[in-house]
Deep mutational scan, measured.
Amino acid sequence: MVQKSRNGGVYPGPSGEKKLKVGFVGLDPGAPDSTRDGALLIAGSEAPKRGSILSKPRAGGAGAGKPPKRNAFYRKLQNFLYNVLERPRGWAFIYHAYVFLLVFSCLVLSVFSTIKEYEKSSEGALYILEIVTIVVFGVEYFVRIWAAGCCCRYRGWRGRLKFARKPFCVIDIMVLIASIAVLAAGSQGNVFATSALRSLRFLQILRMIRMDRRGGTWKLLGSVVYAHSKELVTAWYIGFLCLILASFLVYLAEKGENDHFDTYADALWWGLITLTTIGYGDKYPQTWNGRLLAATFTLIGVSFFALPAGILGSGFALKVQEQHRQKHFEKRRNPAAGLIQSAWRFYATNLSRTDLHSTWQYYERTVTVPMYSSQTQTYGASRLIPPLNQLELLRNLKSKSGLAFRKDPPPEPSPSKGSPCRGPLCGCCPGRSSQKVSLKDRVFSSPRGVAAKGKGSPQAQTVRRSPSADQSLEDSPSKVPKSWSFGDRSRARQAFRIKGAASRQNSEEASL
């Protein structure tokens, strides 16, 4: 019999049943779409005989028809080659250093092939080196495509196609095609072959870009420019304004007297070369007005044109410092986490200390709560409330009815002989401070409620009492009544008793 458990639990079988086999339907690529829901599959020993999904071999995947050992070796080799080519560490840098020397040698020989004295001697060596480079780069490109299958997102032919569309893979295939075209054109020995050789060798310069396949330098440059984009835009904007204004004023001053400034384009060329401190010297002002304007705008514009270099330099320094700090933080993070875990385990398992309490023990206690009866409008029989619902239920009951529930009420002091009981919340009678006064009792026990209740009776009109401690106690149990005489010590004692009862009640409510 096959059962599914969608909550991750395992159904224990009877003692008479045989052992169960467990598997996940959602992990089987050969299962139909209706059953690939991630549910837990529990099947008996007879299920494989019936041809269940556990008995079927995997229909898809890279190692579907391969033995386990061969499949493990296949995956291990794939991961190894992918890490060597895409994430070089340790001795893997030897291969990348060899590729760099190969590319650099091709670049140097290409430069010498353009010089007439070394053209014949360098062409033969360059031809052999180009063949070696094409073979190495071609094999490396196909190995990269194959090894990318170790990543989940690059599996299958669609994943390989996605990997081949990456920018550096596109550069690799462009350089490979250009190198093959250069060799094919150079072997023909005609004029067209020579011109094609010179034009296609430009694409071989892109080999130097592939040295940084992970794009660390470009990411660093982009992060620095993005972090200081506002400062760079401000400096370039002001420098551009200085360039336009200086070129226009010098053009007006030199026009008609200097042949170097016949057009405004000549003035812009002079301004750009001057403000960037290049100074070719092919154009320069000759009149005193033009020289004065050139000197003034040079002092202003050079500072703004040189400002981005300082901004980028400081940004690079701060970014490198931040990377070093992050690297040290990552080195200290795992030991710190292990130290915290060890300290907590020692703290939680220390049996010699009796003052340690688990944080979840508070929620494991069961509280007896009286249940409210809507018919009699009273609190009758009580029941046990689950631990997770205790706090919310108690808050709702307290807010609606005004009752305070507590588990172990402390012993109440008995009323003394000299001070009789003053009210239901005086704190001297046991069992009276455990409940709050309802809204109805407060209204009818207050002086205003009594006056409103007995407004029509003649006794209420004739008998008038001065405010005393009895009425103030019933009005607000948490307030201290004001004494009408300064020498009345009994009223002071009563006030301290009320304060103590109120503080105890607040602490009990907070504990609930």
Score class of each variant (00 low, 15 high):
residue 264 Y to N: 14
residue 253 A to T: 07
residue 356 L to V: 02
residue 268 L to F: 00
residue 215 G to R: 10
residue 258 N to Y: 11
residue 243 L to F: 03
residue 337 A to V: 04
residue 230 K to Q: 04
residue 311 I to N: 02
residue 356 L to R: 09
residue 159 G to V: 02
residue 178 A to V: 11
residue 313 G to E: 00
residue 320 V to I: 11
residue 189 G to V: 03
residue 231 E to D: 05
residue 213 R to W: 11
residue 340 I to T: 07
residue 195 S to P: 00
residue 215 G to E: 10
residue 96 H to P: 09
residue 269 W to L: 13
residue 279 G to C: 15
residue 358 S to F: 01
residue 214 R to P: 14
residue 122 S to L: 09
residue 350 N to K: 03
residue 96 H to N: 02
residue 194 T to I: 13
residue 307 L to P: 02
residue 259 D to N: 10
residue 276 T to N: 01
residue 250 V to A: 10
residue 217 T to N: 12
residue 225 V to F: 05
residue 306 A to T: 00
residue 228 H to Y: 05
residue 154 Y to D: 00
residue 230 K to M: 08
residue 172 D to G: 07
residue 292 L to P: 06
residue 190 N to H: 08
residue 265 A to V: 08
residue 1 M to V: 01
residue 359 T to A: 10
residue 282 D to V: 15
residue 213 R to Q: 12
residue 199 S to R: 01
residue 304 F to C: 15
residue 278 I to F: 11
residue 337 A to G: 08
residue 259 D to G: 05
residue 260 H to Y: 04
residue 430 P to S: 05
residue 266 D to G: 09
residue 79 N to K: 08
residue 306 A to V: 07
residue 193 A to D: 00
residue 8 G to S: 01
residue 305 F to L: 14
residue 340 I to M: 04
residue 198 R to Q: 00
residue 225 V to I: 03
residue 104 F to S: 05
residue 85 L to R: 05
residue 420 P to L: 02
residue 278 I to N: 15
residue 263 T to I: 09
residue 253 A to S: 06
residue 344 W to R: 09
residue 341 Q to R: 15
residue 328 H to N: 14
residue 249 L to P: 12
residue 281 G to E: 12
residue 281 G to W: 10
residue 304 F to S: 13
residue 350 N to H: 06
residue 190 N to S: 10
residue 217 T to P: 11
residue 247 S to W: 14
residue 314 S to P: 05
residue 214 R to W: 06
residue 114 T to A: 02
residue 335 P to L: 04
residue 353 R to G: 07
residue 231 E to Q: 10
residue 329 F to S: 11
residue 201 R to H: 00
residue 55 S to C: 00
residue 271 G to R: 15
residue 238 I to L: 05
residue 353 R to H: 03
residue 207 R to W: 14
residue 119 E to G: 05
residue 325 R to G: 12
residue 209 I to T: 12
residue 279 G to D: 14
residue 175 V to L: 00
residue 231 E to G: 14
residue 276 T to I: 07
residue 349 T to I: 05
residue 159 G to R: 04
residue 162 K to R: 01
residue 273 I to N: 09
residue 196 A to V: 09
residue 211 M to V: 02
residue 250 V to L: 03
residue 256 G to R: 08
residue 274 T to M: 13
residue 195 S to C: 05
residue 169 C to F: 01
residue 235 A to V: 15
residue 144 R to G: 04
residue 318 L to V: 01
residue 258 N to S: 08
residue 81 L to P: 06
residue 185 A to G: 03
residue 277 T to S: 06
residue 147 A to P: 07
residue 343 A to S: 06
residue 188 Q to K: 01
residue 212 D to A: 14
residue 203 L to P: 15
residue 283 K to E: 02
residue 280 Y to C: 09
residue 268 L to P: 07
residue 207 R to Q: 11
residue 273 I to M: 09
residue 254 E to D: 10
residue 283 K to R: 02
residue 204 Q to R: 12
residue 317 A to T: 00
residue 228 H to Q: 00
residue 315 G to R: 06
residue 113 S to F: 15
residue 284 Y to C: 00
residue 290 G to S: 15
residue 285 P to H: 13
residue 339 L to Q: 04
residue 285 P to S: 15
residue 127 Y to C: 13
residue 242 C to G: 10
residue 62 A to V: 03
residue 1 M to T: 02
residue 204 Q to H: 09
residue 265 A to T: 12
residue 206 L to R: 13
residue 351 L to V: 07
residue 355 D to E: 03
residue 217 T to I: 09
residue 350 N to I: 07
residue 388 L to F: 02
residue 239 G to R: 03
residue 247 S to P: 06
residue 301 G to D: 09
residue 222 G to D: 13
residue 267 A to T: 13
residue 269 W to C: 13
residue 211 M to R: 12
residue 341 Q to H: 15
residue 114 T to I: 05
residue 359 T to K: 12
residue 185 A to T: 04
residue 248 F to S: 06
residue 208 M to V: 10
residue 200 L to P: 08
residue 214 R to Q: 06
residue 280 Y to H: 13
residue 296 T to P: 12
residue 101 L to H: 07
residue 386 P to S: 03
residue 212 D to G: 07
residue 243 L to V: 08
residue 260 H to P: 08
residue 418 G to V: 04
residue 331 K to T: 11
residue 205 I to V: 11
residue 206 L to P: 07
residue 290 G to V: 15
residue 301 G to S: 04
residue 182 V to M: 07
residue 319 K to R: 12
residue 337 A to T: 04
residue 265 A to P: 09
residue 193 A to V: 10
residue 221 L to R: 12
residue 293 L to P: 06
residue 287 T to N: 11
residue 210 R to C: 02
residue 9 G to D: 02
residue 333 R to W: 10
residue 352 S to P: 00
residue 411 P to L: 01
residue 335 P to A: 14
residue 212 D to E: 08
residue 212 D to V: 14
residue 294 A to G: 05
residue 284 Y to D: 11
residue 261 F to C: 01
residue 362 Y to C: 07
residue 255 K to R: 03
residue 360 W to C: 10
residue 197 L to P: 13
residue 281 G to R: 14
residue 332 R to G: 11
residue 144 R to Q: 01
residue 250 V to G: 11
residue 247 S to L: 12
residue 291 R to S: 09
residue 312 L to S: 01
residue 223 S to P: 14
residue 130 E to K: 14
residue 355 D to V: 04
residue 333 R to Q: 03
residue 210 R to H: 12
residue 351 L to F: 03
residue 261 F to I: 01
residue 378 T to I: 04
residue 263 T to A: 06
residue 1 M to K: 02
residue 225 V to D: 13
residue 271 G to V: 08
residue 285 P to L: 12
residue 339 L to R: 05
residue 237 Y to C: 13
residue 107 L to F: 03
residue 266 D to E: 14
residue 282 D to N: 15
residue 294 A to V: 08
residue 278 I to T: 06
residue 309 A to V: 04
residue 234 T to P: 04
residue 342 S to L: 08
residue 219 K to N: 10
residue 322 E to G: 11
residue 159 G to E: 08
residue 306 A to P: 01
residue 210 R to P: 13
residue 259 D to Y: 00
residue 290 G to D: 15
residue 335 P to S: 06
